[in-house]
Design a protein around this nucleic acid. Sequence first.
DNA 1: CGAATAGTGTCTCTCAGACATTATATG
DNA 2: CATATAATGTCTGAGAGACACTATTCG
Lengths: 251, 251
Amino acid sequence: MSELYETTGSEKEFLKKYDLTKYERPSVTADILVFTVVPKSKELKLLLIQRGNHPFLNKWALPGGFAAPDESLLDTARRELVEETGVEGVYLEQLYTFSDKGRDPRGWVITTAYIAMVPFEKLNIKSGDDAKNAALVDVIRKNDSWCFKNEDIGLFLQESDIAFDHYRIIDMAIERLRGKLDYTDIAFWFLPNQKNFTMPQLKAIYDTISGNEYERSYFVKTIKNRYGSRLKELGKQVHGVGKPVMHYSYK
Amino acid sequence: MSELYETTGSEKEFLKKYDLTKYERPSVTADILVFTVVPKSKELKLLLIQRGNHPFLNKWALPGGFAAPDESLLDTARRELVEETGVEGVYLEQLYTFSDKGRDPRGWVITTAYIAMVPFEKLNIKSGDDAKNAALVDVIRKNDSWCFKNEDIGLFLQESDIAFDHYRIIDMAIERLRGKLDYTDIAFWFLPNQKNFTMPQLKAIYDTISGNEYERSYFVKTIKNRYGSRLKELGKQVHGVGKPVMHYSYK
DNA sequence: CGAATAGTGTCTCTCAGACATTATATG
DNA sequence: CATATAATGTCTGAGAGACACTATTCG
């Protein structure tokens, strides 16, 4: 017993004297990929910010920032997301940590990227009107690479317009979204309301992220099969032209 | 053109004056989960190291260490792996970055965990004989949690014997291994020789990682179906009792 | 020959995926 | 009634999964 106390005591002693700064340390940032889907037009959109500082002045980058002391990187991502977009309470998922030498010309900087899945209705980015110069861009496939455009502000970006290694991050993120689409429920996070949605709405999200069109009857069958126990029918509703739609609640 | 030069120049100026250390920085480590599979006995094994220092003196932890300046975390993991086990040229895959507040009593330390998939034959850990006190432990499921044992040295560990948040890391790693088993080719990395193996060998690896027994004929059919184009038959060989076995080469 | 091991064949059931049909709204 | 939209039904082929049978070697 006294031995236990002594061990505990000496651990306290140890920690008191321990100096982490004897090792060199990198700077650490969190970057956020704010994805959203517009169901009507079936567009996948991503939030980019034009840099106002060196390095990569005027290039476009992912929102993000340095970690604050004793803050988890998830908290960093969440904080930066609120600061840069005002968006709160969305689903964040860690993507990957990028630490290649030379990825940041300022020095030894590693970053952990987080994917934010945001319903379009929650986002209120007024492109190109504020100091920050944020833009919600359409993610387009062209010549085997990703391009980003926003026709409202006449913006067209390709790989060379993207700062740091952020193009690679974006590429990995889209791959991750597509990969997880069919065996997780990530698509549901893009719904304006998980407690009240329709199959055509959900299908539009699947179509958009996957980049191809699911067959209608097959889609409904599959979803009901996969999530049947977590779905509740809320009743049919008239919605304009066409047959009334069944509304569902998830989870 | 001169404008371009000027911009470049001012970026250089900027970088020269830029001081990353104005932000506080965390310490960063890489931890490695060295997994291996013993096909004969169908055991999943993990390399743990008993700590000889505070904090968590005498508890067991994953091998790992602090990142060195301008080294990628993958390189850190690879370096530590060689230093601690002598193992080279194995497949490493990033698992996750852990950064919760309080995960390390020494202070602000984040870690990126890497999974190493090592053929049993490549590992040569002589348990409990060296200063480092490394042990290759069997990963066992007991009462809905993971336990770790090595009967040669009379070792039995449970969650409370694991240092830091490493139990959580191990838990996530096993889940990752199992999750990726059926839709990636990770199992092949545990083969002693990808260029010459048999289906019973491969099946033992799948059985071990998944924790259940695949049906024989179903297994072979499925694998051939999935990787048919990447498999080459090398011919049958006698191997003791029983029908001669077909040998395959992957990729 | 019997036990051990590996390979092959068969049968059922489910589900992916394509396609056709029906139902209900608007104008 | 034509059109738009959503839901439902049908058919086929591939594959999951269980089971039985055959083939080859050793003692």
